[in-house]
Design a protein around this nucleic acid. Sequence first.
RNA 1: GUCUCCUUCGUCUAGUGGUUAGGACACCGGGUUUUCAACCCGGCAACAGGGGUUCGACUCCCCUAGGAGAUGCCA
Length: 492
Amino acid sequence: MVRTRFAPSPTGFLHIGGLRTALFSYLFARHNGGIFILRIEDTDRTRYIEEAMTDIMESLKWVGIEWDEGPDIGGPYAPYKQSERKDIYLQHAEELIKRGNAYKCFCSQERLEKLREEQRKRGEKIGYDRHCRNLSEEDIKRYESENKPYVIRLKAPLSGETNFNDLIRGKITVSNETLDDIVLIKSDGFPTYHLANIVDDHLMRITHVIRGEEWISSTPKHVILYQSFGWEPPFFAHVPVILAPGGGKLSKRHGATTVKEFREKGYLSEAVLNFIALLGWSYDDKTEIFSMEDLIKYFTIEKINKASAVFSYDKLDWYNGVYIRKKSPEELLELGKPFIIKADLLTEDEIEANRDYLLKIIPLIQERIKLLSEIPEKIWFFFDRHFEIREKKELVPKGLDISQALDLLKKARKGLEKIETFTKDNIEEFIRGLMEETGFKTKQIFMPLRVAVTGTRVSPGLFETMEVLGKKRVLDRISKAIYYLEDRKSLE
RNA sequence: GUCUCCUUCGUCUAGUGGUUAGGACACCGGGUUUUCAACCCGGCAACAGGGGUUCGACUCCCCUAGGAGAUGCCA
């Protein structure tokens, strides 16, 4: 039985890179009918952020990643929060000391810093000098009786080499001389990532460790840890990182970085999911659109790329447009609601009261937006409370003068008024006729009407827009434009 | 500095010794058209460099360069 886990530390909101690592881990488990576990690695209380755990869970759920065991739902190997498992790690570290594979180190942090500084200065390999590795029994006893603070370190082999087989990169070998005696238990009694992670992965029967490539250089030490316990290590797969456009880490400077931010900017979860799945993984040479179901069906580790991928906001935007166009008006309205409210366009109650109207508006803008957050700016003019002719000058397009525009608007008002059933087909029939009658070019006739009715020169199709607005609004707005032009008689 | 990993169009990628090196995004051009989109058609554009191995290398090996990560009582 395949068992994978996502093991974030709650030091901030879930990053898009973390989401992808979680996704790959999740997909692998699901593809193989296995179990996916969420484990919170909160062993660094100095960086702990209260809201982080909630955010991580909400972000995962948002894209449809669901765990079978986790801190909120428990499971056969609970608890799934490392701060609640402190004793387990301590016991294991002591076990290692007994086996002669770990030792107490009484070196102060000051000494270690000084040591590193000197090593750097002399251009030597930087790392712990194993000062306490062979302390005599008496020294240890003495320090202990003095209550001197200590950490527990792993005794790494001094010679030979350690290797492991990475499912993505193949065999990775390091010379043991380059290894350090890593800290297992900190002086505050909390375990480090290395210990807690290995102990939990073993205890929780994790079969495949799928994590970011920043862990590659730690893995040999982890392998030694497994060996020291006499445990069989799991399979490892280190997935490439996501880079910012131009290289380097993805940061706020480039745009959204946390899942929460993407959500708030108006990205759809399907788009984010589809996009990140294809960042470092591919199915074939042509398929671009994948649902979660598709991903589960097709996902294999072999198709994960070795090289890191650069994040492309352009492509994400394209995906978002694709998924927005797939939505029904009802769904899109539901998704757009928070954005409409946030932009102060309508209140929650107003949205409900205008539900049918909005459902007719949505299809008109659906293929014109890439982000949900663009909805308010595309539909504002449908609401009288906000309506104004924003681009008044455009009432009189190039090639027409004011009196011609006025004449046109008046004729249009008159004709539109006569239309009994105000449908786009009937409107079109009339306006086409008006074109013939006046002899004006299409642009010259559409633009004054478009500006009068929608307030700006960019809008959805005129006939559909008019139909949705309804006869009364259309006529009122045309009248408004006429009064404006008559009043001015000139447009400076 | 040392160690490890990585390297196909601007970007995401397909490719597993013999291909006109394919697709997608972006970009450019055209079509449709009522503005903006959407849509359709077309175009631009890549095997980091140098050595090998081989009848033949994008594919295998080595070196160099570039990039990334690690080098923490952070994960």
